[in-house]
Amino acid sequence: MSKLVVLVEDEVNIAEAIRFLLGQEGWRVETLANGSGAVEVIRKASPDLVMLDVMLPGKSGFEILDELRGDPAMETLPVLMLTARGQSRDRAMAEKAGVSRFMTKPFSNSEMLDAVRDLIAS
């Protein structure tokens, strides 16, 4: 059974790149471009990993993460956060909200894949 990753990313090109890369690893990727319905979708899909952009239309990545961590069922769900705003403040906020891993865009494909592998393995 292949692993399921939910990717919340509004930039179509980035989403396509990630989908391609994860697909090559044999994982299924479910992509969302909007933040507002994301929590519901994730809850239903109960994925092995969630990849979150921070700046999303509708709802920000932080808010989504907050809601996920508030749900006991998804407390331990691995969340990889990707952001184009690379300031340390954002990293601190993400860590406070309970992120599993935080990556700054642009990332190297291999690093991203390593992170995903790590998170799914743990």
């Binding site: 930039e11 090109n13 980035i14 790149a17 990630i18 890369l21 700046m55 184009a84 705003r85 690379g86 300031q87 700054t104 865009k105 642009p106 990332f107 190297s108 494909n109």
Partner: peptide, 15 residues
Amino acid sequence: ISHELRTPMTSIRSF
């Protein structure tokens, strides 16, 4: 600015 610059660069680098 960082965000606006990093976003296209992410796609460029990745692809």
